[in-house]
């Protein structure tokens, strides 16, 4: 069964000073599934992402990625172990070209971290992979524009592309459709569906339509505690979830 669990959170708690944000969170993400975390604002979803990706260390508990402890490790090590995240607020290299934004991720995966004696233009594999990624996120015609010049939804697509660039096994997306029109949401969801094939996805999302159509399993986080985990049907039918969070929406 071990191989089945790609990400395992055990007894995770996080406090900032006297404020308890998370308490006793137990969560298992299975290999290859699309798993959503939902919950009202302030439930601790972003904090949970920050703990998994290495932004913060948990106050207590352990986080296993493929059986290896990652709690408290710095972000760059967690990334190299195969987990990559996107950000709720677009976090790109504004002055660099779209292509360059992606290539930096691809370079990292190729281990070109301190490469001072090679020409970047001569790295064929890196450049080809970056071009391919550019096509996958459908930004070919924006290739040489500074990333800061893109429209909001294009930047969100780039954000996802950058998350994929290090070829992670586990992908964390933090509200990928936040602030988007329906049309844009549809576009981004199709993109996510396409690019995460064969990978494990953990996503924080507010749009319930998106969550129920995209994901295999859903976890509900309320006031720092995990209320339930299950398939969309199970979550829809769960009384506690209905009372605490979904309310009229699905009843």
């Amino acid at each position: 069964m071990r191989e089945d669990r790609v990400l395992d959170l055990r007894g995770i708690a996080k406090s900032f000073g006297s404020a308890r944000i998370l308490e006793g969170v137990e969560l298992t993400v299975r290999r290859g599934e699309r798993h959503a975390i939902i919950g009202p604002n302030g439930a601790g979803k972003s904090t949970l992402f920050n703990l998994i990706s290495g932004q913060f260390s948990p106050t207590s508990g352990s986080i296993l990625l493929n059986g290896r402890e990652i709690a408290g490790r710095p972000p760059h090590q967690i990334n190299r172990m195969g987990l990559s995240r996107s950000f709720q607020i677009t976090n790109i290299y504004h002055r660099l070209s779209v292509f360059e934004n992606l290539r930096l991720g691809v370079m990292a995966r190729h281990g070109l971290r301190f490469s001072l004696f090679r020409r970047v233009a001569a790295l064929r594999a890196v450049n080809e992979e970056s071009e391919a990624l550019l096509q996958r996120i459908r930004l070919e015609d924006r290739r040489d524009r500074p990333a800061g010049d893109l429209t909001y939804s294009e930047q969100r697509a780039l954000e996802i592309g950058m998350t994929l660039a290090t070829a992670p096994e586990v992908i964390l997306l933090d509200e990928p459709t936040a602030g988007m029109s329906q049309e844009e949401t549809h576009y981004v969801i199709e993109l996510i569906r396409e690019v995460t094939k064969g990978k494990t996805l953990l996503v924080v999302e507010h749009d319930m339509n998106v969550v129920f159509s995209l994901c295999d399993r859903i976890s509900v986080l309320v006031y720092g505690e995990l209320l339930a985990t299950g398939t969309p049907e199970e979550i829809r039918a769960n009384r506690a979830v209905q009372e605490a969070y979904l309310g009229e929406e699905v009843a």
């Binding site: 990706s53 710095p74 972000p75 760059h76 990334n79 190299r80 990559s84 995240r85 950000f87 976090n91 790109i92 290299y93 504004h94 002055r95 660099l96 360059e100 290539r103 930096l104 991720g105 370079m107 990292a108 995966r109 070109l112 971290r113 301190f114 490469s115 001072l116 004696f117 090679r118 020409r119 970047v120 233009a121 790295l123 890196v126 950058m162 660039a165 290090t166």
Partner: peptide, 29 residues
């Protein structure tokens, strides 16, 4: 400026946080 590390230097200027989340050790860089 034409080496991979030179490109990384520019990325560091634009957004140090993202550099870390792409697997680079920002401090060493």
């Amino acid at each position: 400026t034409r080496t991979p590390f030179g490109r990384l230097t520019l990325a560091l200027r634009d957004n140090e946080e993202r550099v870390r989340f792409m697997g680079y050790d920002a401090h060493a860089t």
